[in-house]
Write a protein that binds this DNA or RNA. Structure first.
Lengths: 208, 208
DNA sequence: GTAGTTTGTGAGCGATCGTTCAACTACAAG
DNA sequence: CTTGTAGTTGAACGATCGCTCACAAACTAC
C-alpha cells in the first residue's frame, strides 16, 4: 500500500555517480545532484538520509557495477591475461573518442578527498582490493599459461600494478597526453616481467 | 612609506599550503585559512586577490620549495641514484613517526580536484614535470655509473616512475599499510631493471 | 466512498561560503 | 605637527550550502 516510487534506484545512482566522479564529493552540490537525478530534496533525503548517504550508495554502486565489471571483463574473463592487463590500463583513458572528456575514477578521487568524506574509507578500500585481486587472478592465470615466469611474486606484482594504475588515473586527470599514458601502460608489462619482483630479490633491495 | 607588513610571505604560504594539502581546495574554507595563517580577510584579499590566488601562490611555493627540494635531495644530488629513487619513494610515507598523519601531495590532490580549480592545471603540470625530469636525471646518472643497463629507455622509465609514485601517494591517502607501500617501492626498482622498458621492446608489446 | 499509508513537492530554514569595504593604524616626507 | 600612503581590521554582504517539513498526491484495504 501507499504511493509507488517513480524513480529507479539504478538510474538515480548512475547519474549521481557521474556527477561525483567529475566534481568530487565537495564539488557536487545538492542542487547539482537534484538536477542530475531529477529528484527533489525531500525524496533524496527520504531515500538516502544525507548527501553522504547518497555518495556512499553511489560508491557501492560504482564498486559493484563499474569496478567489478571492468575487472571481470579485462582481468578475470580475458583469454590472454597479459593482454587483459594491458587493455585494463588503456581502457582507463581510451574512451573511444566519446564526447565526454573523462569522468575520473571514483576510487582515486575519493581516496584523495577522503579527509572530507571520512565514512567511505572502507568502500574505497574494498574497490581497490577488487582491482588488486583482479590483477592477482590475471597474473596467476598467466603463470599457468606459461606467459609469465613462475618466480614472479603474484601478490607483490598485483600491489604494484594497482599503484601504477592509480597513478595513471591521476595523470589522466592532470591532462597528460595519450602517448605518455601508453608509455605508462607499457610500464605495467615491464613490471610483471621484472626479475627482481620476487620476494627473494626484494629482500636484497631492502639492504640498500 | 606607509605601514609595514606584519606577516611573512613564506610563513603564510607554508600554513596555507599545509591546510590545502590536508583538506584540498574546496575543503579548506576562508575561515580555516584565516585561522591557519593568522591573517584577516582584508589582508588576505589585498595580498592574493582571491582564494584561488592564494591557492595558486601556495602551489607555486610547493613546487619551488617542497617538490624541488625533495627532487634535489633524493634524485639530483644523491651519490647512489638508484638508492635515491628508493628513498624518494619511501620518504613519501615514512614520515619519521611524526605526530601528523600525512599532509598529502598537493600535486596529486590538485590533479584530482582540478575540475574545481581550473586555473592551476599548468602549475600541477610543472610540478609533475619536475619530478619526472628528476627521475630522468637519476636514471641517466645511474647508467653512467653502470648501475643500470644502457638499453633502458630513460624517458619512458621516468614517466613510469612518475605514475607509480603518484599511485603510491593515492594509496597512502587510502590508508594502505606500510608493508604494501614498501612493496610498491620495490616496484620502482623492478621497473627500471625490466628488459622490455626499451623502445624496441615497447614496440613489440604494442602489437598485442 | 473513507481511512490509512507511502511517496513526491518545493518553499524556506539556519549556517556557512567567498568576498567587500569603510574605518582605523602605523609609517615616511615635508 | 600635518599630509599622504600602505597595511590591518572585522562587520557584514549576497549567494549558496546541506537539509527539514508541512502539505499534496497516489496508492491499498475495507
Amino acid at each position: 500500500m501507499g504511493r509507488k516510487q517513480v524513480w529507479e534506484q539504478g538510474e538515480v545512482l548512475a547519474s549521481a555517480m557521474r556527477l561525483f566522479r567529475r566534481r568530487g564529493y565537495l564539488g557536487a552540490s545538492l542542487r547539482d545532484l537534484e538536477e542530475a537525478t531529477g529528484m527533489h530534496p525531500g525524496s533524496l533525503y527520504r531515500a538516502f538520509s544525507s548527501k553522504e548517504g547518497l555518495f556512499s550508495a553511489a560508491l557501492d554502486d560504482y564498486n559493484e557495477r563499474v569496478v567489478e565489471g571492468r575487472v571481470r571483463a579485462h582481468l578475470r574473463d580475458a583469454e590472454d591475461p597479459v593482454a587483459g592487463i594491458r587493455s585494463f590500463f588503456t581502457s582507463a583513458f581510451d574512451t573511444g573518442g566519446g564526447p565526454e572528456p573523462d569522468p575520473g575514477c571514483l576510487l582515486t578521487n575519493t581516496a584523495v578527498e577522503s579527509f572530507s568524506v571520512p565514512h567511505v574509507a572502507p568502500g574505497v578500500r574494498r574497490g581497490l582490493e577488487t582491482i588488486e585481486s583482479g590483477f592477482a587472478d590475471a597474473l596467476t592465470r598467466a603463470q599457468a599459461q606459461r606467459l609469465l615466469p613462475e618466480e614472479l611474486d603474484v601478490e607483490k606484482s598485483a600491489a604494484q600494478l594497482l599503484a601504477l594504475y592509480q597513478g595513471l588515473l591521476v595523470l589522466v586527470r592532470s591532462g597528460t597526453d595519450a602517448a605518455k599514458l601508453h608509455t605508462i601502460t607499457d610500464g605495467a608489462l615491464a613490471l610483471i616481467r621484472a626479475r627482481n619482483a620476487t620476494a627473494k630479490q626484494a629482500d636484497e633491495e631492502e639492504q640498500r
